[in-house]
Amino acid sequence: MQPEARNENLNPTGIKVVSLISIGQHPQSGRARRAEQDARAVELGLNLVGTGLELLHAGEGDETVMRSYLGMGLPKMTLLKQRDHCDALPVLAEYLARKVPDLVLTGVRAESGEASGMLPFLLGEKLGWPVINRIAAIGEVVDGEVEVLQALPRGQRRAIKVRLPFIASVDMAAEAPRQSAYGPGRRAAIDANATDGVVDAVRTGWQESPARKKPKRLKVVKAKTAADRFKAATAKPQGGGGKVMKNESATEQAQAVLDMLVEEGVIR
């Protein structure tokens, strides 16, 4: 379901949009990839200003990943080259302060590393721009003001008006990114600028290890009486096969279904 016509080269709004892209990580394989939220941010940007969108990455700039973003139809991108474990914030803030875009798009959280989700807010704080979290769509720019749709849990949306310039982090609820095409991605230009990276000193003291499985919270029965303990010990474990209603009337059956729905809180 992709829109028929895309304003690939038009920039009707005439605004400058920068999309920050990061190295994603596949949750199953851990392999570097186009980050899902960042790709959605790029998609939003492309739909907003076409190929006028600027892609910006600070870091080593894994070539395959950068090209997979470029394969969405952008002829070039800017790479602020610095070594891993350098803090992306200072170089990005410096670059953005110099370029003064109208809109900066990011993902909500990185897919690798600390993934604190702090970057948009830190940038906002540094640049003095408002930050809007988890947007799903951006409307048209009217007199420097734009209406964005913010994604709320359970597929709900909130309309927000904000003046340019601002920073927005893009939620997974935004339109899915277009496919990355290998050919154009390979031919696009990566404009690499060397920077003096500042090593993230705080992080050096941390210890990283593969994620441990979080223990599932047990239902601890704090029994005060013998009967409580007896009950806890003999209670039927959950999930041991469901309840089957065969011979009840349709009304009773429907009532049982309804009770379950109400109990689970999906019907209010």
């Binding site: 949750p27 851990g30 600390e114 993934a115 941390w206 210890q207 593969p210 994620a211």
Partner: peptide, 19 residues
């Protein structure tokens, strides 16, 4: 702390502000 994509755990000194 859980890192990106739920793939790593980061052990660090407890800071003042915690999510």
């Amino acid at each position: 702390c859980r890192g990106g994509s739920q793939r790593i755990d980061i052990s660090r000194a407890t800071p003042r502000l915690l999510l």
